[in-house]
Simulated assay, not measured.
Amino acid sequence: MPRSKPLAALAMDVRAADAVLKPAVRRRLAEVVELTEPVLSDFTCQAAGRVLPQVELLITGWGCPPLDEAALARAPRLRAVAHTAGSVRGHLTPACWARGIEVSTAAAANAAPVAEYTLAMVLLANKRVLPVARAYQRQRSRTDWLFPDPQLGNYRRTVGIVSASLIGRRVIELLAAHDLRVLLYDPYVDAARAAELGAAKVELAELFASSDVVSVHTPLLPETRGLVSGELLALLRDGGTLINTARGAVVDQEALTKELLDGRVHAVLDVTEPEVLPAGHPLWDCENALLTPHLAGSQGNELDRLAELTLDEVRRWAAGEGFAHAVHPERKELLA
């Protein structure tokens, strides 16, 4: 008997599936696709051998194994991939693009909490919350309620955004509500488009030299590894702050560590190279650095946003409408 709904399988770490695609979401998915069991975290296992030959849609997530030629050979009917997280670089291979498989990603949903985290850290950095709070805790007293330091505060500060990525653009939008000047470096964006986004286009050296806070949002590509070099960090204003929510390897971490240990600048690092830093790394005890464990991306109830976007995408695809958040092959080299 012909199947009335497309056959779909979940391909990710089981823990990711349980966190993102809760039972209520899976029931809603089952209204538009025939959802198979179990969750596949290995395309070579016996269960995959039973499921893949018939599957038409893979709903992927963190921990999905690579969809290489061998895996695709086991899935001759596969037509689409709906990713419940952001980057697809970890599991989509050239073989996927060569076969013309449709791809969707929940990157737009994952961008929201990263941008919110960045906005919060920009405002806190200019307010000098971390060093002031630490000094207050040490002194356990306050000499005056007024802080006349001209370097403290958000009024007409300059924020530099490295890359008008999905997240970078959202950060610029959020910054527009505040009395801040925004600079943008992105070689793929011209001055007119930067102005439309709400920023002034500048070269990278000018951005670092002119900004009170620099926030990094560029994807990690061969040409962006070490992009934030020691030379650029040396241009950052005394007391300036670097925020990195992208990838640790985009920044010359050794040069940044030296600047931080010298006490000249500050940093908010949600990512490092490697993740996690070795136990004895000096950044752990550096007062000028705030380290968070890849917290900016979707966590807790923010995972539900990923599920909702993916559910909408699956519904569209099953209805023959195509993905609203499609990943286009011509952009694959620029993906995070």
Score class of each variant (00 low, 15 high):
231 E>R: 10
242 L>F: 11
252 D>L: 05
244 N>G: 07
226 G>P: 09
247 R>S: 13
268 V>K: 00
228 V>D: 04
238 D>I: 04
233 L>E: 02
237 R>F: 01
229 S>D: 12
229 S>Y: 13
246 A>I: 02
264 R>D: 08
256 L>S: 03
259 E>M: 03
248 G>D: 11
233 L>Y: 10
248 G>M: 11
234 A>R: 15
255 A>T: 13
241 T>V: 08
260 L>S: 09
245 T>V: 15
251 V>M: 08
247 R>Q: 12
256 L>N: 04
246 A>Q: 04
249 A>K: 15
235 L>I: 06
262 D>V: 03
229 S>P: 06
251 V>C: 09
253 Q>T: 05
226 G>D: 11
238 D>F: 02
261 L>H: 07
238 D>H: 06
247 R>Y: 14
257 T>D: 02
239 G>W: 04
240 G>L: 06
261 L>S: 11
257 T>C: 12
243 I>K: 03
244 N>M: 07
265 V>S: 00
233 L>C: 05
231 E>D: 13
240 G>M: 06
266 H>F: 14
232 L>K: 01
255 A>E: 10
268 V>H: 02
257 T>Q: 09
255 A>P: 09
234 A>T: 15
265 V>T: 02
252 D>M: 05
250 V>Y: 13
244 N>S: 12
258 K>H: 13
234 A>N: 15
251 V>F: 14
259 E>G: 01
239 G>P: 02
232 L>R: 07
249 A>F: 11
265 V>L: 00
263 G>I: 13
239 G>R: 03
262 D>I: 01
255 A>D: 10
246 A>T: 03
239 G>D: 03
227 L>Y: 11
255 A>L: 08
239 G>K: 03
227 L>S: 08
262 D>P: 00
263 G>A: 09
238 D>C: 01
239 G>Q: 04
247 R>F: 14
246 A>V: 04
235 L>K: 13
240 G>T: 14
249 A>N: 10
242 L>G: 01
248 G>F: 14
247 R>M: 10
234 A>C: 11
236 L>F: 09
227 L>K: 14
259 E>H: 07
238 D>N: 06
265 V>M: 00
262 D>R: 10
261 L>E: 15
250 V>F: 13
233 L>F: 12
259 E>Y: 01
251 V>A: 10
246 A>D: 03
263 G>F: 13
252 D>W: 07
241 T>E: 01
265 V>P: 00
232 L>T: 05
238 D>P: 14
253 Q>F: 10
269 L>E: 08
242 L>H: 05
226 G>R: 12
228 V>K: 04
230 G>E: 06
237 R>V: 14
266 H>I: 00
248 G>E: 09
257 T>G: 04
230 G>A: 09
246 A>M: 03
233 L>P: 03
258 K>C: 02
263 G>P: 09
253 Q>N: 14
233 L>R: 01
244 N>T: 09
261 L>V: 15
260 L>G: 07
235 L>T: 06
267 A>W: 07
262 D>Q: 14
228 V>E: 02
226 G>L: 12
259 E>V: 00
241 T>Q: 00
249 A>G: 12
235 L>M: 07
261 L>A: 11
232 L>I: 05
255 A>F: 13
229 S>G: 10
250 V>L: 07
262 D>W: 08
227 L>I: 11
245 T>M: 05
236 L>W: 06
230 G>W: 09
264 R>Q: 09
